[in-house]
């Protein structure tokens, strides 16, 4: 029996993803601080993120509706585990607040960061508002995080 041998290596991974048309339009809107959802003509559900088809009705989605950058906190947590950012490979520092936010005008919730990371100051039902970055790149993290409104 030999001592166990290991092969240790670091693999570089890179990706290049084409956006679905609906997502491309959504991201273009973010560059102008505009949030839009797609409404299903069958069930009426307003989807964020936008997508080609309603998963419940199987109908194509084409009806764009405006969504506010404010909403209701539907779920929250404070994460204490650092995580490798899958886009950059850098560690994201902990702790940080995470929430599910139902933006006014949307029926699905959006998972995003919260400015607040003190559990004592977070509660389901709080009103929250997007804090936008100065430089907008047309990505969902053009919103830096959501802050709790007084």
């Amino acid at each position: 029996m030999s001592a166990p041998v290991h092969v240790a290596l670091e693999m570089d991974q890179s990706w290049r993803y084409a956006a679905p048309a609906a997502m491309a339009r959504f991201c273009a809107g973010l560059k102008e601080r505009r949030i839009e959802a797609l409404r299903c003509g069958g069930c009426g559900r307003r989807y964020l993120p936008p997508r080609p088809v309603c998963g419940n009705c199987h109908l194509p989605l084409a009806d764009w509706v405006p969504v506010a950058d404010e909403g209701r906190l539907e779920a929250w947590t404070v994460v204490h585990v650092p995580i490798l950012d899958p886009r950059t490979g850098r560690m994201r520092e902990a702790p940080y607040g995470m929430g599910l936010v139902r933006l006014d005008g949307a029926d699905t919730t959006l998972n995003h960061f919260l400015a607040q990371s003190d559990p004592a100051r977070l509660a389901i039902g709080q009103r929250v508002r997007a804090v936008w970055r100065e430089q907008l790149a047309g990505a969902i993290d053009d919103i830096r995080h959501f802050e709790v409104l007084a």
Binding site: V7, A8, Q13, W15, A19, M23, L84, D85, G89
Partner: peptide, 19 residues
């Protein structure tokens, strides 16, 4: 619209008994 990203992931494989 295209989005690019790059990441480095560490792995450590056991060769096992025979290996």
């Amino acid at each position: 619209m295209i989005r690019e990203s790059a990441i480095r992931i560490p792995f450590r494989y056991a060769a096992g008994g025979a290996g």
